[in-house]
Simulated scan of single mutants.
Amino acid sequence: MPAVQSTFSSNQAAAFLGQIADGEQVTNVISRVVDPATANPISFGDPVLQGASDGTIQSVSGGSGAFRGIAVRDPTLPPSAGDQYVATLTAAVLTKGVIWVNATVAVAAGQPAYVTSAGALTNVATNNTAIANGMWDSTTTIAGLARLRLG
């Protein structure tokens, strides 16, 4: 029988997009269905907006509506989903707590967080929408994985 895996890293990755960063007792995760009318999938760690009807969400990219939270990583999704929530799947959405996301620029702990119209997360206020009670919880020197605190 051939080896299933013949090479591996000696160190695990520090974090993954959409991974809840710690076990704080103030974490809140809700379930919402990805709006069936949406064409844009939602990747782990992406910000999401209210969908067209109650109980639904949609991607910031190409969507409009109130900010609802950040999509949480779900390792139980079918492989065909490609690590994304697609239309009609039920998504886990963090509304309060700390989660790993992709900062599109260098950020510093304590800075306010903003989302662009394309769905990127940043610390730049100009032409972007503030995430209410959102702040960066870690510091990066370049764009990349960072902890975002909601709530």
Results as ranks from 00 to 15, higher is better:
M1K: 10
M1I: 11
M1N: 14
A3C: 01
A3S: 12
S6H: 12
S6Q: 13
S6L: 12
S6I: 10
S10A: 12
N11H: 08
N11R: 13
Q12G: 15
A13D: 10
A13C: 06
A13N: 12
A13R: 14
A13Y: 09
A15N: 13
F16M: 06
G18P: 08
I20L: 12
G23Q: 13
G23E: 10
V26E: 14
T27L: 04
V29F: 03
S31N: 14
R32A: 15
V33N: 08
V33K: 14
V34A: 04
V34M: 09
D35G: 09
I42E: 12
I42S: 13
S43R: 10
V48T: 12
Q50I: 03
G55C: 05
T56G: 03
T56S: 10
V60G: 08
S61G: 10
G62E: 07
G62N: 10
G62W: 05
G63W: 00
G65I: 00
R68H: 01
A71K: 00
V72T: 06
R73T: 01
T76F: 12
L77W: 03
L77G: 03
P79W: 01
S80E: 15
G82P: 00
G82K: 07
Y85G: 08
T88V: 11
T88R: 07
A91V: 03
V93M: 03
V93N: 06
L94K: 01
L94F: 04
T95E: 15
T95P: 06
W100I: 00
T104N: 15
A106E: 02
V107T: 02
A109Y: 00
A113E: 07
Y114L: 01
A118I: 02
L121T: 08
L121H: 07
T122H: 06
N127S: 15
N128M: 02
N133H: 04
G134S: 06
G134K: 04
G134Y: 06
M135L: 11
W136L: 05
W136G: 07
D137K: 04
D137R: 05
S138H: 01
T140S: 08
T141V: 09
L145Q: 13
L145D: 12
A146V: 06
L148H: 04
L148R: 05
L150C: 11
L150F: 09
L150D: 12
G151Q: 11
